[in-house]
Amino acid sequence: MSMINEKEFKKLASHKNEVCVSIFIPTQRAGKEVLEEKNKKHLHSEWVQIRKELKEDGINNSLIDKIGKPIESLLDDRDFWRHQSDGLAIFSSPEFFEKYTLPVNFETYHYISEEFYVKPLVPAMTGDGKFNILAIQLGDVSFYEATRFSITPLEIDDLTPSRLEDRVGYDYKEKALQFRTQGEGGEKTQFHGHGGSERDEKEEAKQFFRAVDQGLKNYLNKEKLPLVVYCQDYLFPIYKEANTYNNMIDKVVSGNPNDTDLMGIHQKALEVAEPFLNENRDEKIEKYRELSNTESTTSVVSDIIPAVYQGKVDTLFIENRAEIWGEYNEDKMKVKFHENHQNGNISLLNLAARKTIEMGGKVYLVEHEFMPEKESKMNALFRF
């Protein structure tokens, strides 16, 4: 599965061509909809509509065929449709094609212009919304960097022991540490051993977890991201005792990480991390409100876009699912607004979002009721 990263985002954002097609559709991971090929049919329906619009715009058939060939090949890829997440983003031009399977509930949307529509992907590039995942068992340790949109496995073999016996010694008998569930109905799982006490076995596990904690300490403290732990319930209290990292979330993703795939690990960890990922956004919104009616903020779109190009914007708030159509003359620093999407104009919100990221600012897609100044679809907090 292809998930977006910063390098790929910037490649998309900078791509220009006579015709660029961006497609977003919601998808289902499993169930009846997948068996009935609902995801595939949804894309097919969008592509039929896009072909019609391209023809109406006077685009010749050979160009349409170039854009459509990889999309139509994707429609025939049965294996691809069996492995979906929550949303699918497709970007196609005569010389370019890329697709991203993402844990994002996109609304169905397509955009035809001389640029790709990257606004729905922008929050993944702000840096906020990043977190780490530690998937740990006594016989296995895995570590990931994640955002709402992506998950990347990180190699940590040189930092941590990968198995308990690597820490407590190979004279440790793996069979001496077993687990059983006492009683019916999945009650608390407990340690028991052959010839050893429960306390000793827990101490060995704690010793192993302490080694993992210390091995990751320097890495974790570089960015101080939220840390989500994925392990079985009975192990989490032991890991909490061993843990010294202040930004570990005090709620476990319960279960065996080996029972799911990479996308499943991401989905479950995101559910735990989500409440902690909006903290920086909320701080910026509060800062905007504190500085409203000063020269440090504005909600005037015709002022915001030139300021973005000049690198003045620290944080840009864009109303989610909103749109502003028009043109921007960079030489004259002038914005022209249109009522509808038409030949020659662009999404000004898409333009402002991608340019803000390019200039090192941050962008947040915000629901209308949470916008700092609700009368505008775009608010900007300037750098001091």
Rank of each mutant, 00 (worst) to 15 (best):
E114Q: 15
E114Y: 11
E114P: 04
E115I: 00
E115M: 00
E115C: 02
E115N: 08
F116W: 02
Y117W: 02
K119E: 14
K119N: 06
L121R: 00
L121M: 02
L121W: 00
V122K: 00
V122P: 00
V122C: 00
V122W: 00
P123W: 01
A124H: 07
M125K: 01
M125N: 00
T126H: 01
G127H: 05
D128S: 12
D128L: 07
D128H: 07
G129R: 04
K130D: 14
K130V: 10
K130I: 08
F131R: 03
F131N: 01
N132L: 05
I136L: 06
I136N: 01
I136K: 04
Q137Y: 06
L138S: 09
G139K: 12
D140V: 08
D140F: 13
V141F: 03
S142L: 10
F143D: 02
F143G: 04
F143E: 02
Y144E: 01
Y144I: 06
A146C: 10
A146Y: 06
T147R: 00
R148L: 11
R148V: 10
F149K: 00
F149D: 03
F149C: 05
S150A: 13
T152K: 09
P153T: 08
P153I: 11
L154K: 09
L154H: 01
E155Y: 13
I156D: 04
D157R: 14
D157S: 14
D157V: 11
D158S: 15
T160F: 07
S162Y: 13
S162H: 15
R163M: 12
L164H: 03
E165L: 09
D171T: 04
Y172P: 08
K173Y: 06
K173C: 11
E174K: 14
L177K: 10
Q178N: 13
Q178P: 07
F179W: 11
F179V: 11
F179G: 09
F179D: 06
R180W: 11
T181S: 08
Q182C: 12
G183E: 14
E184K: 07
G185P: 04
G185T: 12
G185E: 15
G186K: 12
E187C: 05
E187P: 05
K188P: 10
K188D: 15
T189F: 10
T189C: 06
T189E: 06
Q190W: 08
Q190R: 09
Q190C: 10
F191Q: 08
G193N: 09
G193M: 02
G193L: 07
G196E: 15
G196K: 15
S197C: 03
S197E: 02
S197D: 07
R199M: 13
R199H: 11
R199K: 10
D200Q: 14
